[in-house]
């Protein structure tokens, strides 16, 4: 019996053999990360929830092609990222719909004034992220929110580490430019 905190690979091998319970364990391990990524890519709670399921279904169907050399998380994010881009293309969402008020503000902030400022900063970041091109948004989310290394991002986006490095710099510069334009 595998422990629930064991490495993904063992669960993936069991899931590859058709064990749906093993796959459910993998889904539970990664569902919040995939959901978070898709939510910030698409801006809609309902869409993110639906596409998270779609991404896992695709992962289940693609499991026979999974190789032990591939890290399951990056392999899964590759599927999730493609799912998000497909949805964006299908819905022609260049400028995203407004983010719903589903993001909670940090609750550990004791000072109301500071809390209000932090909330404002978060909303500003979310609003500015929506204005970014999808390829900039995805690479920033993978780096800053999912805390992936350049190598991992390269695997998810099928890019060389050099391209990841330059695209990240461009994405940051673009976001800073959006901040500058949004200031009164």
């Amino acid at each position: 019996m595998l422990g629930s905190d064991g490495p993904d690979d063992d669960w993936v091998r069991r899931a590859q053999a058709g064990d749906r319970e093993a796959f459910s364990e993998l889904v539970r391990r990664h569902q919040d990360r995939v959901f978070r990524y898709l939510l910030r890519m698409l801006g809609s709670h309902e869409d993110a929830l639906e596409l998270t399921q779609d991404a896992f279904i695709k992962a289940w169907q693609a499991l026979p092609q999974w190789q032990p050399e591939a890290q399951f998380r990056t392999w899964l994010f590759r599927i999730a990222n493609n799912t998000a881009l497909d949805a964006l293309r299908r819905r022609k969402l260049v400028e995203f719909v407004p983010l719903e008020n589903s993001f909670d503000t940090p609750s550990s902030e004791p000072d109301p004034e500071r809390q209000a400022q932090a909330t404002q900063e978060v909303r500003q970041l979310e609003a500015n992220m929506k204005k970014l091109a999808p390829e900039h948004r995805q690479i920033l989310l993978l780096r800053e929110v999912e805390e992936m290394t350049y190598e991992e991002i390269g695997r998810v986006l099928s890019l060389s580490e050099g391209t990841v490095k330059s695209r990240l710099a461009r994405a940051r510069a673009a976001l800073i430019e959006i901040y500058a334009r949004s200031r009164p």
Binding site: V27, R28, Q31, L49, Q53, I57, A118, E121, E126, E144
Partner: peptide, 22 residues
């Protein structure tokens, strides 16, 4: 500013939904 972004979660058991669809 990214560090300040709040944690978000689906709030539902996606595993059971996915299993049903599979």
């Amino acid at each position: 500013s990214f560090v300040a972004l709040p944690e978000v979660a689906a709030g539902v058991d996606i595993a059971s939904l996915v299993d049903r669809r599979i």
